[in-house]
Amino acid sequence: MEFSRRETLALGLGAAVVTVMPFSVNAAADDVIATFTGGADMADTGIELTAPEIAENGNTVPVAVSAPGASAIILIATGNPTPGVAQFNFGPLAASQSASTRIRLAGTQDIVAIAQMADGSFAKASATVKVTIGGCGG
């Protein structure tokens, strides 16, 4: 990002040191959720979503999901240009219904994980991840 000298001065003069990308939400995220759940209610227990509070770098953010007894879990980045991130389908030889991966986040946003349980019900967890502008070289 190119800053004019005026902007650099403003930053240096006590503006927030941590520069945070603007929060954004995407209506397409709701569509992705609706496709997965068919509009059903989602319980707020039964699924865990682990993500850092502040991402070291938005290009590679480690996240983990876990929902004992789930047949599938979807992961959504509500602030990304396209919100769908992944869908984990667990087979009979999965030892646990959990997985970790690394994702790209375009800016500060909520990420959402929804599990479909064996009995057909759904559970949802979300986490806010701050994505910052780095200091030097991005």
């Binding site: 930053l11 290009n59 910052t132 200091g135």
Partner: peptide, 22 residues
């Protein structure tokens, strides 16, 4: 901190480095 980066001593004992950024 320099903006949101935590400044190190700039050592290169870990190079070549896998950067999350790229």
């Amino acid at each position: 901190m320099i903006r949101a980066d935590h400044l190190s001593q700039g050592q290169i004992n870990g190079f070549p480095v896998y950067r999350l950024k790229n």
